[in-house]
Write a protein that binds this DNA or RNA. Structure first.
Lengths: 291, 291
DNA sequence: AGGTATACTTCAGGCAAACTGAAATTTAAT
DNA sequence: ATTAAATTTCAGTTTGCCTGAAGTATACCT
């Protein structure tokens, strides 16, 4: 069997015009090169060089040189692609995230990641937590960033950080200038606009506040528009409130259980691609301080 | 370094869906396959199969499978081309020959040769002996079939057979019905049309006959046309006379030195291509009986 | 032409890598 | 739970490449 490395030896000797220089290039001794060349010629049953001074190729040698050079080029290129795919230097990363993380955390992380890995392509979908779960479960997206999924969904959840809810109200609202954290009692009689993120709040007091089907919104933009319009108040994770306008306030809440958990969603028994794995490391490192 | 054979192992296992079958295909034991696979995953730093039952690939494994399959296809194809070139199964053979050999001997040999080696291309030039030498010396053609070249021309000559000259005359010529071989004396007073082949005849008597610049022709067709027209007689190698029409005769010549030597012309210190080498064998075998 | 330097090949020994067969472990199935 | 099958691990052997030294051929120089 003709070894690829024997062809590489041949091409190098042909290019150098002598064994000594080729040996140096290949970090071998001349004797090793000589033996490899001899073996190659035996396997082919024909000579590749005119004399044993390797300065001139036979006709077959010249033909071989063309074919082997091409072979090695393709070979090295393919091996590089494999290497790139395996180390995550190259590949496609499809991910879905809840909007707050997508807007506040991911941009910086993704920008750095792409700069380090020019061969990587990223596709980001931002949507609510349950859609993130669905996209990961369905394989549309490899990685999700959202709250914990239902058990038995075939998904794994790796917690990243916890994020306390805040009360969002207009700057001219009665509660806006409170210095103390807001209690559930403070919200008695207020109209609360429910939303998907806040629905994970387990506190019975909150449940009572949003029990009746008053008003709810799915999208953060419309949610805030409703608050701005004076339609009511809402609760949002802290991260979703960092870029509110001057006309709105985000007030801490006294109940420490009013928080959401954000983590990474993956499909069970699906080894992540190397790109995904690398980005995962990056996310964990990038959110360690928030935890 | 990732070996090509390791990739072949991987692709086979992926295709078979298990190690045992792949081991059988590759004439290895399952343990060898297992170790190669393990080593490959270590070199990549990532898993290629989801479980250690090799039935499902990871995302990286699937990507690798695509790349590696393509790599192996190209690799095997290139190696086959090399093999074909080295064994003369494929390639181009450019050869030049004197017309008599080209017309009488080569057609059969070439036809057989091409049937055995479908990948081979042949280009045949037929011209006079000295042009054959020039074409070989100039590299236009790799192999020549002709008389011996001048020494010092950088050509090698391998004798194939000797071919006695015959006297060509019209069927109604006075000499046409002779039963005895023709002597130089018989030709006294006859007009001899000289030609390149006959100019190698060394006999002083013949030299005397064609000394004065009477008539000469280069091409066999025109030479015979002249004889037919009654312009004179000529001497041609026996091989060139086997297909004369009924109106011409080819008479043996008494002088045993009136013969030409035909052989193979190659460039000195140029290793013949494998196709050429193979055809050379064929010529030698095909002309052994004539010698 | 002869001597010398250079280039290549050959040889023997060392060493690393790969393969085999047996035993252990893991996984799937009844 | 037990059994059967598949895979991995382990130890030992073999294979084959590489090195360094010695030998041979070639080219260059005087």
């Amino acid at each position: 069997m003709i070894r690829t490395e024997a062809l590489r030896v041949f091409v190098n000797v042909a290019d150098c015009g002598n064994i000594r220089d080729a040996a140096e290039r290949l970090f071998r001794t001349p004797s090793a090169i000589s033996m490899t060349l001899k073996q190659l010629e035996e396997q082919l049953g024909a000579r590749l060089f005119e004399t044993d001074r390797k300065s001139t190729l036979t006709a077959l040698g010249a033909e071989m040189h063309t074919i082997a050079t091409e072979l090695l080029r393709d070979h090295d290129r393919a091996l590089d692609r494999i290497e790139a795919a395996a180390t995550g230097r190259q590949g496609r990363l499809q991910l879905a995230s809840v909007p707050s993380v997508a807007a506040e955390l991911l941009p910086g992380l993704l920008a750095d990641f792409l700069t380090e890995r020019p061969g990587v392509t990223i596709e980001l979908v931002d949507t609510d937590s349950s859609s993130v779960h669905a996209l990961v479960a369905g394989g549309t997206v490899e990685l999700g960033i959202a709250g914990p999924p239902d058990s038995g969904s075939g998904l794994t959840f790796t917690p990243l950080f916890r994020d306390p809810f805040r009360l969002v109200c207009r700057a001219d609202h009665a509660l806006a200038d409170r210095t103390e954290p807001v209690t559930w009692d403070d919200l008695g009689g207020q109209r609360i606009i429910s939303n998907e993120a806040a629905s994970t709040i387990g506190a019975a007091e909150y449940r009572a506040l949003v029990k009746s089907p008053a008003l709810s919104a799915r999208n953060v933009i419309s949610l805030l528009a409703l608050v701005r319009a004076g339609a009511g108040l809402t609760l949002l994770p802290r991260l979703a409130t960092v870029s509110l306008g001057p006309d709105l306030r985000a007030l801490p809440i006294a109940d420490p259980t009013a928080q959401r958990e954000v983590g990474v969603i993956l499909r069970q028994s699906r080894t992540p691609t190397p790109v995904c794995g690398a980005f995962l490391d990056r996310i964990v490192r990038g959110t360690r301080d928030i935890r």
